[in-house]
Simulated scan of single mutants.
Amino acid sequence: MATNSAVPDYELEETIELTTADQVRAISDPLRTTILGLLHERAATVTELAAAVKRPKSTVAHHVNVLATAGLLKVVRTKRVRAIDERYYGRAARMFYVGLGRQGQGAPLPHDFNDFEVALKESAAAYDAGQMRSQIRHARIPEEQVVEFWRRVANLVLEFDQLPRSGDTTYGLTVGLYPILDYPTLPPAAED
Rank of each mutant, 00 (worst) to 15 (best):
L173A: 04
I141A: 10
G130L: 01
F116A: 13
D168M: 01
S134L: 06
L156W: 08
L181A: 13
P179F: 02
E122F: 00
V146I: 13
Y127E: 15
R151Y: 04
E143R: 06
F160S: 03
D182T: 15
G172I: 03
E144Q: 13
V146T: 07
H111D: 15
Y178V: 11
A154D: 12
H138V: 15
I180N: 00
L177Y: 07
A107C: 01
G176S: 11
V153R: 04
F116M: 12
I180T: 03
F149K: 03
T170W: 00
P179Q: 13
D112P: 00
A189R: 11
A119H: 07
Q105V: 09
E143D: 13
E143I: 09
E143K: 09
E143H: 10
H138T: 14
I141W: 07
R151K: 12
R152S: 15
A189E: 14
P142K: 06
L177T: 14
D115M: 07
V157P: 04
P164T: 11
A126Q: 09
G167R: 04
P187F: 02
L163E: 14
L120D: 12
T174E: 06
F160M: 05
R140K: 11
E148A: 14
S166T: 15
F113T: 06
Y183C: 08
R152V: 12
A154G: 10
K121C: 02
V147A: 05
N114A: 12
R165G: 08
Y127D: 13
A129F: 01
A124S: 09
E143G: 03
F149E: 10
E117G: 11
A125R: 06
V146N: 02
D168H: 00
D115A: 10
D168F: 00
L109R: 07
Q131R: 14
R152W: 03
P187E: 12
V118I: 04
A129R: 15
V175N: 05
D112A: 09
Y171F: 03
A189M: 06
E117C: 01
T185H: 00
N114T: 10
A190T: 12
Q131Y: 05
N155K: 15
T169D: 08
F116K: 09
